[in-house]
Write a protein that binds this DNA or RNA. Structure first.
Lengths: 225, 225
DNA sequence: CATATTTGATAGTAATGCTATTATTTTAAG
DNA sequence: CTTAAAATAATAGCATTACTATCAAATATG
């Protein structure tokens, strides 16, 4: 399946970049390099000057692809949501039962990503860690409304919409499908972060993936009529 | 009750500040002014130079109270969690039934704050909006482990612990009380933000407080044996 | 009143977040 | 294969940010 998926070019909203980073070698090095650096040093310490140096290029060249590090973060998170959507669509194919579909979807949204498919220049393991720690900074800004009007968050919304639809198949009268799904997605990120850094905010149970177990239980109980 | 609460001095971990801002007029102006400015312009655009000007002082003077704007944000969020804990303790006093206690706690954690008690220099309505949009930036950093070792997040942990205890009163076998509580707190913030800026990620229902209703339903169904 | 502490005024430094210019290389088109 | 066009590298520069240092004036404390 990974083979297959790697043939799909993931389309990111073109208002996010000045020049498509998938279209050139330098662009792809910007993606690979920024993922490495964001994972290591975090969004605050990351700069285009450092990135230029890291990938053997210059600050000015990076600026030809992205207006700011904020837009680059937006690109990476947007890429991630589209990638998740592909994973979802493929892993749900041929599953009939909406219960099984939802179970699988929750697993995908909440599990820890442990292997990189390594067919592209994007390291999904590192990107997942970046999404956990940094993705909320992409929308928790004063520019959110303007950026939203250009559709830069549509990948996230579409993913939430897809999973919400499964919930409505199971319980058409459930009033809060989007709330529940976005609560699960954001919640799972937070819980993974808490487990590593602020364990008193979560419940660390060894031997199983407590986070996935918890959210499965929560969702199925919550949507039950 | 507000009268009563205003007599309690809220204690914030002293590793967060260089000099206690509650101890002087300038310090209190720093708190009042930073709340106004953070609410208006957001954390990214906010600087100590602007704050100094806003409160009729200087950048250098602000730096005598807080090492950085990050520490100031940490102070404000920490203050907020302590304040919430007081609200919680008082509003749960004399309520016997753990179900009612939990219901009340969820209301407190998820409701919109609409009036400022105006007995202090802290505007709780604005602070609540800041907590919604900025508080996660206080811990989603690479410095989280070091800061955590100084106890700067203990106010948040203590609040989560208190509510978790109520859940365990109702269902002592429930395995994920902390996960559930932190999911509710963070989730409610996100949902309020989404309702205002990214409505497709939530379910806007008019006439009632959908966010509080949703989380009440979610919690009680989830902890049911 | 004397002295310690706090604040204000001002200046300075290194890093950040850009933009501009020009030279050089790579690529594409005829 | 040549030439033009496009992309990149190298360098410089500027305004702002994130601080730190110094010193004088104001204020509080004993």
């Amino acid at each position: 399946m990974h083979n297959l998926l790697s043939n799909f070019r993931i389309q990111v909203n073109e208002h996010i970049y000045l020049k498509n980073p998938e279209s050139s070698d330098l662009g792809r090095r910007i993606l690979t390099g920024s993922i490495e650096m964001l994972d290591k040093m975090g969004f605050e310490c990351f700069t285009f000057r450092k990135l230029g140096k890291h990938i053997g290029s210059t600050e000015a060249s990076v600026y030809r692809y992205f207006e700011s590090k904020h837009k680059l973060l937006l690109y990476l998170t947007s890429w991630y949501w589209r990638w998740m959507e592909y994973q979802l669509v493929f892993s749900l194919a041929n599953i009939e039962s909406p219960y099984d579909r939802l179970k699988k979807a929750i697993l995908l949204l909440t599990e820890n990503i442990e292997e990189d498919n390594s067919y592209t220049h994007i390291d999904e393991v590192k990107l997942h860690r970046i999404v956990i720690s940094e993705s909320s900074k992409a929308y928790l800004t004063k520019e959110v409304d303007e950026e939203n009007s250009y559709g830069v968050f549509s990948s996230y919304k579409q993913l939430v919409g897809r999973v919400s639809d499964i919930i409505l198949e199971i319980n058409p009268g459930f009033k809060y499908p989007h709330m529940l799904v976005s609560t699960v997605i954001e919640g799972a990120h937070h819980q993974r972060f808490f487990a590593d850094h602020l364990p008193r905010l979560t419940d660390v149970v060894t031997g199983e993936d407590a986070i996935t177990e918890f959210y499965k239980e929560m969702v199925f109980k919550t949507i039950k009529e």
